[in-house]
Write a protein that binds this DNA or RNA. Structure first.
Length: 459
DNA sequence: CCCCCCCC
């Protein structure tokens, strides 16, 4: 059974596979191919690679390649390609671990047949399950989620001895920028790829992600998640059309306040400095204040060790970290902008790390590069200097249980008061039909609609 | 035969 028509004749949906029956054929789309990972425990040693597959009904199954099978199938099971898989073994899922299917997982044997096919698996049913970011609020913490959103920005990877993580900012049609944390090889591989793509603001889907502590840590990947980049189904095309319209109106989706900022309790600066704060579930507070001085406007950055992010001393390319006690640590530039701000009767110092991106309008590498010659003419530098005497909203995290609070506040986010994010009415946003109509007239999304014969959006 | 759900 190796010809395409034979395979096609025996194909069944994943959910119709008889228990432990090895002669079922499935036709599946690869939505994730994990990196090759070594393992070693008391009984076994080797390498494995996880593959996530989805069939035409939108049912997912996790497959694992071990050892020699990784090499055997190295040119197969590539993301976004469709395959027939015959003579796989369907094992029961270990209930101790999450998987993308409740009951079965696919294992490869020496007899397994994999054949690439041009008969692509339709993602129509699969895409029905993807939710917008605002739907997360209505789900319990720890729910497994399938989300669709627009990439706004990609932060550098943060790694230590035991973990790798990377935060990305994504948004939706309600302009709700939200942080998604990528872990492990999602941070490393998918994250690096997204970093290159980010200026295109691609549409992304997160399959089987999780929302941990609602609001506070937001959404993150788990080991069985998948990240789809620029999928071609209707929901993604609609979201892209919306993005193009927003951009055509010269609204910048990257500057809207995040959910954390919107939800934070607003307090007068005096109350923060005097420790007179109401209880807040996620310790986030916001206050209005005017920037009265920029304390380090000539060099608002430092060399930051990649392990602990503390300041490192760089002498002839080698960076020594006194915090980690390493002589030669990897490092990168990081913003550290110190401001004097006043609100009400009181003034205080505020430090911006990543939030400086927001104020200056570019990342630290770009800032350093563009201010290295003729700084006074640099747009970003001028933006910084001109922020003086203007009023901003600051978002800070304050741990009420900390008996020794720091004197300078760390702002997680900053937004100038006059140019608050564009307010978009929910009804307007929800009317995808309207966007589609406008998109047809005004943007090159029209080309995609005409190609793809849109189905009527359910809503 | 793997199996990490982690963070200011």
């Amino acid at each position: 059974m190796t010809t395409e028509s034979e395979l096609a004749n025996h194909t069944v949906p994943i959910n119709k596979i008889p228990k432990y029956y090895v002669d079922s054929v499935i036709r599946v789309l690869v939505i994730r191919r994990g990196s090759i990972t070594p393992y070693k425990n008391s009984k076994h040693e080797g390498t494995y690679r996880t593959i996530i597959l989805v069939d035409e009904e939108g049912i997912k199954i996790q497959a694992t390649l071990f050892n020699k099978h990784i090499e055997t199938w190295k040119d197969f099971l590539k993301p976004n390609k469709s395959y027939y898989i015959a003579k796989g073994r369907y094992d029961r899922v270990n209930p101790n671990y999450s998987s993308v299917h409740k009951e079965v997982e696919l294992a490869f044997t020496d007899n397994t047949v994999i054949k690439e096919t041009d008969h692509e698996v339709s993602t129509q049913n699969f895409s029905d399950g993807f939710l917008s970011l605002d739907a997360v609020d209505n789900l319990p913490n720890g729910s497994i989620l399938d989300l669709i959103y627009i990439l706004v920005s990609v932060n550098p990877i943060i790694q230590n001895a035991t973990s790798k993580r990377r935060e990305i900012v994504v948004t939706n049609e309600l302009m709700e920028p939200t942080i998604v944390t990528l872990w492990g090889d999602f941070a490393e591989n998918d994250g690096a790829f997204l970093d290159k793509l980010k200026d295109d603001k691609p549409i992304l889907c997160l399959c089987d992600g999780v929302s941990i502590y609602k609001g506070r840590f937001g959404i993150s990947t788990i080991p069985v998640s998948s990240v789809l980049i620029n999928p071609i189904f209707q929901k993604a095309i609609d979201l892209r059309a919306w993005r193009e319209i927003i951009e055509a109106d010269n609204k910048d989706i990257t500057v809207a306040p995040t959910k954390a900022m919107r939800r934070a309790i607003e307090v007068p600066l005096d109350h923060i400095l005097d420790g007179l704060l109401p209880e807040s579930q996620d310790s986030m507070y916001k206050f209005k204040a005017t920037i009265v001085d920029i304390l380090n406007k000539d060099e608002p950055w430092y060399f930051s060790g990649k392990t602990c992010r503390k300041k490192v001393k760089v002498i002839e390319e080698a960076a020594a970290c006194t915090n980690c006690n390493i002589d030669n640590v990897e490092y990168a530039m990081r913003y550290c902008l110190r401001l004097e701000v006043c609100g009400g009767e009181k003034c205080t110092r505020v430090v911006l790390f990543e939030a400086a991106n927001n104020l200056l309008g570019c990342n630290v590498q770009e800032y350093i590069q563009s201010t290295s010659i003729k700084k006074e003419e640099c747009h970003y530098y001028r933006k910084l200097v001109l922020s003086k005497d203007k009023q901003f909203n600051f978002l800070v995290r304050i741990d009420l249980t900390d008996s020794n609070p720091h004197r300078s506040l760390i702002a997680e986010e900053i937004h100038q008061l006059e140019d608050q994010a564009p307010v978009i009415l929910e009804e307007e946003v929800r009317s995808m039909r309207k966007y589609r109509k406008r998109a047809k007239k005004t943007t090159n999304a029209a080309a995609q609609f005409n190609q793809k014969k849109p189905k009527v959006a359910k809503d």
